[in-house]
């Protein structure tokens, strides 16, 4: 399997919201190419008569509709830096185009 092209790496980086330096794009193209090559080996196995399996177990595991205590707000927000809090709300860059700070 050949290396991934620059465009492909840039597209994947965009979807993952990762910033890559030009040199990193080059290196990443080679690394991802090697990973895909491994999957190509797996894909070579003939699976014509093997049904698709997405889960190891297909047992129903439904939960009863019962409310249990939620996390205390302080715990829920404990991973936030101070500047990302406004009272008990999470502060993020504006979601409205043109209003980004």
């Amino acid at each position: 399997m050949a290396d991934l092209s620059r465009t492909e790496v840039e597209q994947i980086a965009l979807l993952a919201r990762l910033h890559l330096e030009p040199a990193e794009i080059e290196a990443m193209g080679a690394e991802l190419g090697a990973i895909l090559a491994h999957f190509a080996t797996l894909a070579a196995v003939d699976t014509t008569d093997v049904p698709a399996m997405t889960h190891a177990t297909e047992t129903q595991t439904l939960r009863a509709d019962v409310v249990e205590p939620s996390l205390p707000v302080e715990d829920a927000l404990s991973g936030l830096p101070a500047k990302a809090r406004s009272g008990d709300l999470i502060v993020v860059p504006s979601i409205i185009p043109g209003h980004e700070s």
Binding site: R63, D65, V66
Partner: peptide
């Protein structure tokens, strides 16, 4: 009464971020 995949409540108008798990 509870969320789709976990047991936090679904009541409307609760204090912000008080219904998480």
């Amino acid at each position: 009464s509870s969320k789709a995949f976990s047991p936090s409540g679904t009541a409307f108008g609760e204090p912000p971020n008080s219904l998480t798990d």
